[in-house]
Simulated scan of single mutants.
Amino acid sequence: MITNSQSGTNVHEIAEGIYRINTPIRLPDGARFSFNQYLVVDEDPLLFHTGPRKLFPVVSEAIGHVLPLERLRYVGLSHVEADECGSMNEFLAIAPRAVPLCGQIAAMVSMNDLADRAPRAMADGELLVLGRHAMRWFDTPHVPHAWECGLMMEESTRTFFCGDLFTQPGSGEAALTEADILAPSEAFRRPMDYFAHAPSTSATLNRLASEEPKTLACMHGSAWRGDGSSLLRELAHAVTTSA
C-alpha cells in the first residue's frame, strides 16, 4: 500500500502483525536508497527505527494508515543515529504513552538526555511482552557499529530486527524477498565499510544466528525470509575475512 504518492512511502505486512514502512530516496550521487521502519501492531504497539527527522511527516502518515499514532507505546532504536531516532521526540509528542526503547548503554550515554521522555532501558536477553508478540533484546556492542548497539527478535514469528545488518542499495521495492541479499549488501558495505570489526564481531553474529530467525527486518532495502541462521553465519565469515 502506497501511503504517500509524492515520496513513494509504502507499507507492507512482512510477518503476522509486523509492518515494514519504506521510503525510497535519492542519494547526492543520484543512486537509489531507502529507509525502513518496522511497526509491531499489538496491545502495546512498537515502532522500531523512527527514520530521519525530515521523514517524520511521511512516516507518521504511513503509521496512521495502520493504527492511530497516539496508540504507540514504544519507539525503539538500535543505536543513536539520525535514521534510528532522528524524530524520536516528534513521536513522543504525538503519542502520550510512548517511551523510547533502547539498550542500557544507549540510555546512559544518550537517550536520558536526548529524549523528551525517560527511556525503557533493556538488558541483554530481556523479553518485552507487547501482547501477542514478545520482543527479546540482544546487546550487540560495535555490531555493526556503535558501542550502544543492540538488536531485537520477535519470538513467535522469529522476526529479527537486524538494523544496519544486510543494508542493501536501491529503493527496496520488494517488501519481502527470498532472493540473495548477502551479495548486494556486501558489495555496498565494502567501499565505505561501516562495520566496527570488533574482536567480538564474529561471536556476536554467530550468537544471533543461534536464535534461528526466519525473517530479517532490514533497515535499508528489502526484508528477507529464509534460513536466517545460515545467512548470519555467512555474514560473519564475510566480515571476518574482509576485515
Score class of each variant (00 low, 15 high):
Met1Tyr: 01
Asn4Arg: 03
Ser5Ala: 06
Ser5Phe: 03
Gln6Ser: 10
Gln6Met: 04
His12Gln: 12
Ala15Lys: 09
Gly17Leu: 01
Tyr19Phe: 15
Arg20Met: 02
Ile21Phe: 03
Asn22Met: 01
Pro24Met: 06
Ile25Asn: 02
Pro28Asp: 06
Arg32Met: 02
Phe35Trp: 09
Phe35Arg: 03
Asn36Val: 00
Asn36Phe: 05
Gln37Gly: 11
Leu39Trp: 04
Asp42Thr: 13
Asp44Asn: 08
Leu47Phe: 08
Pro52Glu: 08
Lys54Arg: 06
Leu55Glu: 04
Phe56Cys: 07
Phe56Glu: 14
Pro57Gln: 06
Pro57Asn: 02
Glu61Met: 03
Glu61Pro: 02
Ile63Pro: 03
Ile63Gln: 05
Leu67Met: 10
Pro68Lys: 12
Pro68Gln: 13
Leu69Asp: 09
Leu69Asn: 14
Leu72His: 11
Arg73Tyr: 11
Arg73Glu: 07
Val80Met: 12
Gly86Gln: 05
Ser87Asp: 03
Asn89Gly: 12
Asn89Gln: 13
Phe91Trp: 15
Phe91Lys: 13
Ala93Met: 15
Ile94Trp: 13
Ala95Ile: 14
Pro96Cys: 10
Pro96Trp: 14
Ala98Glu: 08
Pro100Gly: 10
Pro100Trp: 15
Cys102Ser: 13
Gly103Arg: 09
Ile105Val: 15
Ile105Pro: 00
Ala106Lys: 07
Leu114Ala: 13
Leu114Ile: 14
Leu114Pro: 02
Arg117Val: 13
Pro119Arg: 05
Ala123Leu: 11
Gly125Ser: 07
Glu126Lys: 07
Glu126His: 06
Glu126Ala: 06
Leu127Asp: 10
Val129Phe: 12
Val129Gly: 08
Leu130Lys: 00
Gly131Tyr: 15
Gly131Val: 15
His133Ser: 11
His133Phe: 14
Ala134His: 14
Trp137Leu: 01
Trp137Phe: 10
Phe138Arg: 02
Phe138Asn: 01
Phe138Gln: 01
Pro141Gly: 11
Pro141Asp: 12
His142Cys: 09
Ala146Phe: 14
Cys149Met: 11
Gly150Pro: 08
Leu151Arg: 06
Met152Asn: 00
Glu155Leu: 12
Thr157Asp: 06
Thr159Pro: 04
Phe160His: 03
Asp164Gln: 03
Ala174Leu: 05
Ala179Phe: 10
Ala179Trp: 11
Asp180Arg: 05
Ile181Ala: 05
Ile181Glu: 09
Ala183Tyr: 03
Ala183Lys: 13
Pro184Ser: 08
Ser185Met: 02
Ser185Cys: 04
Ala187Phe: 05
Phe188Leu: 14
Phe188Ser: 11
Arg189Asp: 03
Asp193Asn: 14
Ala196Met: 14
Ala196Lys: 08
His197Glu: 04
His197Pro: 05
Ala203Gly: 10
Ala203Phe: 07
Leu205Ile: 12
Arg207Ala: 05
Leu208Cys: 08
Ala209Thr: 05
Ser210Lys: 04
Ser210Ile: 02
Ser210Glu: 08
Glu211Met: 07
Ala217Asn: 08
Ala217Cys: 14
Ala217Pro: 10
Ala217Gly: 11
Met219Gly: 13
Met219Arg: 01
His220Gly: 04
His220Lys: 05
Ser222Gly: 09
Ser222Gln: 09
Trp224Tyr: 09
Gly226Arg: 07
Asp227Trp: 02
Ser229Met: 11
Arg233Met: 04
Ala236Pro: 02
His237Trp: 08
Ala238Gly: 08
Ala238Pro: 07
Val239Lys: 00
Val239Cys: 05
Ala243Phe: 01
